[in-house]
Write a protein that binds this DNA or RNA. Structure first.
Lengths: 201, 201
DNA sequence: TATTTTAGCGTACAACTGTACGCTGAAATT
DNA sequence: AATTTCAGCGTACAGTTGTACGCTAAAATA
């Protein structure tokens, strides 16, 4: 097992995924990508693409999974920072902004396919975001005086705002981002305050 | 002035715009549209398209303007309902959900191009949304005990949540929408509460 | 060692795209 | 009435797309 052959296959499969991510940008979305372009950048013949994916859709879903994984790893790291004494809101926001900065194409994929033309894509992204919401909701439920239902709604609102701020940040310079982040933090405070008021148990 | 000729030109121009809107759907975004398909549906030859728009981009920007106009008109109507004694939050949310229901393709355009591949599109959509935020912020500033800066942040957060809920509603049935709307209303209450606390003057 | 499996290639093709170019007939202008 | 303007058309072309098909060489298996 894991012979030379399977190893090489895995390698070009990954090359395809990376080629696709590389071609994403502010001006290029996944649905604009062509199978041929991706294959070209990955250094294989167009027809060899099919040895790895049934079609571009399958590649895309794999990419969504990968982006979700990256995000989850980053947030796990954030939780560690929080556990060792950081502010929840500020640490989470900082971590998310880091994700947007260092993995902007992965974020762009999630952002765009969330409202894209493939139901499967939309569902996949929604699933990733839901993970997120549930994790945060769990935290809020155990660490703040907020009942389960309100914790969920609070979490949902917060994740929505953070995600959206991330989208805006993509087009902004450092100065604008700083202002955006500051507003975002206030807005998260509003929600925390309101939820703790209505949802106190 | 307004001769037979100019009138006919205006008519086919509108036919192009409507053809393009008709071709938008859950599975078809603006960037998937082809000039030829749009021209075909509008009943003109592909090359005649250029008599009306420089390219598809110009058509798209016109469509964004039109969608923004529709939305603004709807919200003006909502303000009238509020003035005659309705709840601000509930009336606004209901009006927005109505927009999504009756003009789903116009909403889809705004939703997708907000994070699309054309900077001009993104800016155009951002402008429409900013209108919205400023209007609501003005209302909050005059009608609630909240200073200017906090009124703006509150408004921004609220519009973001409403817009995002609209996006989710697109894929949902009546039952799910009702639940979503209920959550949304709670979330808006959180924000109102929190903003009034931190921003009270 | 002999056989089977398979990642990757090259060729080929039909479908579609945007758009350049020149024509036409009717409306508008003179 | 003579002239100009111009919305819309048809033809044409080069470029790109996805993918069907059959081949090859090397790795895996027997």
């Amino acid at each position: 097992m894991s012979g030379v052959r399977a190893q090489q296959k895995q390698k070009t499969r990954q090359a395809l995924i990376e080629a696709a991510f590389n071609q994403l940008s502010a001006e290029h979305s996944f649905s604009n990508l062509s199978l041929r372009e991706v294959a070209r950048e990955a250094g294989i013949a167009p027809t060899s693409f099919y040895r790895h994916f049934k079609d571009m859709n399958e590649l895309g879903l794999t990419m969504v999974d990968e982006a979700g994984l990256t995000l989850r790893q980053l947030m796990r790291q954030a939780r560690r920072r929080i556990a060792s004494g950081g502010s929840v809101i500020i640490t989470s926001v900082e971590t998310f902004m880091e994700f947007i900065d260092t993995s902007s194409n992965q974020f762009r994929l999630l952002l765009r396919e969330r409202s894209g033309t493939s139901k499967a894509f939309r569902a996949a992204v929604a699933r990733e975001i839901k993970h997120f919401i549930l994790e945060l909701a769990h935290y809020l439920e155990t660490e703040t005086p907020c009942d389960k239902h309100h914790a969920y709604m609070q979490s949902e609102a917060m994740v929505t705002l953070v995600f959206n701020a991330g989208a805006e940040a993509l087009d902004q310079d450092a100065q604008q981002r700083a202002e955006l982040t500051e507003r975002l933090i206030w807005q998260l405070r509003y929600i925390a305050r309101g939820a703790n008021h209505y949802g106190a148990q």
